[in-house]
Structures are given as C-alpha cells and as structure tokens.
C-alpha cells in the first residue's frame, strides 16, 4: 500500500524530479528575464496589455505628483539600479548573488516612480543587452516592474505598520520586501511559462519557487546592507514616501496580490491540469493550424511533396540568400573604393 502510494507520487511528479536539477541551473544563471520564443503569442500579448495598463496608470500618477526635479533623479536612479546589478558577491562554487533592485527602488522613492524606473531598466536590458526578449518584454515588465514593485511595497508597508518604528523594523521590512518581490515575481514568470505550454506547471512552479527562495535571500541580505548604510549616512532618505490616506489601497493591493499568488501557485502546481487546459486554449494558434489549413487535404507547396525535401530546399535557398548578400557587399565596397 505504502509502496503503491510512493509509486504514484513518483509517477505524478516524475517530470518534477527530472526537471528540477536542470531548471535550477538555468534559473540560477538567468534570474527571471524570459527570452523570446518561450511565451505563446497570446500570453505575450495579454501581459503586454496588462503591463501597459499598469505603467500607463503609474505615468499619470507620477506626472501629477512629481516636480520637474524628479526627471533627472529617476533617470540617474535607473542607472544606479542598472549599475548596481554589477555589484555581486560570491556565494559558492562559482555562483554569485547580485541585486535586482525593485524593492530598494520602491522603499527609497515610493511605488509609482519605482514602477517607471524598473520599466526603463527592464526595457533597456531587453532592447540593448538581450536580457529578456522583445515580444516577451510585456511579461517581463509585468513581473519585475509591476508585480515586483507592488509586492515589495505591500510587504514593506505591512511590516512597518505592525512593528514599532525602530531601526530593526526597517531592516526586517526591507529584507522581507526584497525576498517576497523576487519570489512572487518568479511565480508569475512560472505561471506564464506554464500558460504558454513551454514548461509543465508542476515543474516550472516548484522549481522557480525553490530556486528564487534562495536567490531572494541574497537580494534580501543586500537590501539590508544597503538600508543599514543609508540609515547611517542619509537617514532622511528612508522617511515615508506615501501621501497619507490614499496610499492604503496601493500597499494593500500589493499585499493581496502577493497572498493570492502565494496561495494559487501551489494549487496550480498540484493540479496542473487546469493550467494545461488554459495553455491548450491560449495555444490555439498552434492548435488551430491543423483544421484551419487542412481545407485542401495534404496540400503542400506546389511541386514539393514532402516536408524533408522542403527543409533541404529551404537550406539551399537560405545559403543562396546569404551568398547573395555577401556578393552585394563586396560589390558595394568595390564600387565605393573605385569611386
């Protein structure tokens, strides 16, 4: 009986054990910037829309609140966060931890400007350094610039409210905010991968959650170090950043999102069928190609009767295209040298 149970647990989570180690290596190296090719088009577009809505609202809030002084401030803080990611410390066996910064940004300048700063950082990482894809940028923005910032802000405000106003309260709040922002953002990334049918939910979610629970510790420790330094040098920087009253909605919203995801993700992981069903539905572009294009049965390109032949032909044509480009370049260079 027990043996049977063990067997069924193993069978159920078989992909998990195999995927865990491999996925762990990958996650430890690439943090959570999803490249192009890993999200289905529908998932990518949905998260683009969500990210644009959230960032658009942040823009309108910041325009109302900020004085012109803050534009250079935001640009330079974005550069600080970007450059701050270079500051690494060795952990073990050649791996190293470094800062992502969503929590520090939210604590130091408040949630709305922090959303914009992280938006700029994540966009330039994708546009210039290929850290994360361009079609997948919407999802990456949603995870790191929206979810990461608001979860951090929600946790930070909660801890600050329920603990007495001391040095330790700020450090503890900073640590938990940084840890949770990494953890929850990684859960959203795992859900996006599962929705796209790229990584099975019962592999992606536990693997992401497990690895980022550890990466989050590094983020939390660096955040404590930074806050302790700032408290000693510029205590004024850590004063409350929110306007009274109205801000409650913001941090409670962030907190609610964190709790919802923390509860939903294990559920989705234990019952991957639900997510996989959605993946099937959203992957309709992939699925629909069957019926939609089989109006003429077995229709292939005229004159090409088989897929292997088509692939070989594509290879030949491809080499031809590249050679033609090379020929064109030498021709242009020759004529410009002659002229």
């Amino acid at each position: 009986m027990l043996l049977h149970d063990l067997k069924s647990v193993w069978m159920r989570h078989r992909p998990l054990w195999m995927g865990f180690g491999l996925t762990g290596v990958w996650l430890a190296t690439t943090a959570m910037h999803i490249p192009d090719g890993f999200l289905s088009l529908v998932v990518a577009l949905i998260f683009w829309a969500l990210a644009i809505l959230a960032i658009g609202y942040a823009l309108s809030r910041v325009r109302g609140e900020l004085k012109e002084r803050q534009v250079p401030m935001m640009g330079i803080l974005a550069a600080v966060i970007f450059a701050g990611q270079m500051l690494n410390f060795s952990v073990a066996g050649g791996t190293s931890g470094h800062l992502l910064g969503a929590a520090l940004a939210a604590i130091l300048i408040g949630p709305w400007p922090a959303v914009l700063i992280m938006t700029c950082v994540v966009s330039v990482q994708a546009l210039i350094f290929q850290d994360g894809g361009l079609l997948a940028l919407g999802a990456n923005l949603f995870n790191m610039a929206v979810v990461g910032v608001f979860v951090a802000w929600g946790i930070y405000r909660l801890i600050r409210k329920i603990t007495p106003d001391t040095r330790w309260s700020k450090l503890l709040a900073g640590f938990l905010a940084a840890w949770a922002s990494i953890e929850i953002a990684s859960l959203v990334a795992a859900i996006q991968l599962a929705l796209s049918g790229t990584s099975p939910a019962n592999v992606a979610i536990p693997a992401m959650a497990g690895i980022h629970a550890i990466i989050g510790l590094g983020e939390g420790l660096i955040t404590i170090g930074a806050l302790a330094f700032l408290m000693a040098v510029r205590p004024g920087l850590l004063d409350d950043k929110s306007a009274p009253g109205e801000s409650r909605l913001v941090w409670i919203g962030g907190l609610a999102a964190a709790i919802l995801l923390a509860v939903l993700s294990p559920l989705a992981s234990a019952h991957p069928d639900g997510l996989e069903w959605v993946a099937e539905q959203t992957g309709f572009l992939d699925a629909a190609q069957g019926p939609a294009y089989e109006i003429i049965p077995d229709y292939v390109l005229p004159g090409i009767s088989n897929e292997a032949a088509a692939t070989i032909l594509a290879g030949v044509v491809g080499v031809g295209i590249v050679l033609a480009a090379a020929w064109l370049v030498t021709r242009i260079r020759k004529s410009s040298a002659a002229g």
């Binding site: 002084r69 250079p72 401030m73 701050g84 660096i222 170090g225 930074a226 700032l230 920087l237």
Partner: peptide, 24 residues
C-alpha cells in the same frame, strides 16, 4: 559578504542621489 555588497549598493545610491542633485 552579502552585507558588504549591500553597503556598496547603498553607497552607489548615495552617489547617485548626489549626482542627480548636481545634474538637476
């Protein structure tokens, strides 16, 4: 080591804030 890196990050922030003032 993480706390040392944190102190460096804090220091980078302070230099950033100061630079932002001068740039402004």
């Amino acid at each position: 080591r993480a706390r040392v890196a944190g102190g460096m990050a804090g220091s980078l922030f302070v230099r950033g804030f100061d630079r932002a003032d001068r740039v402004y």
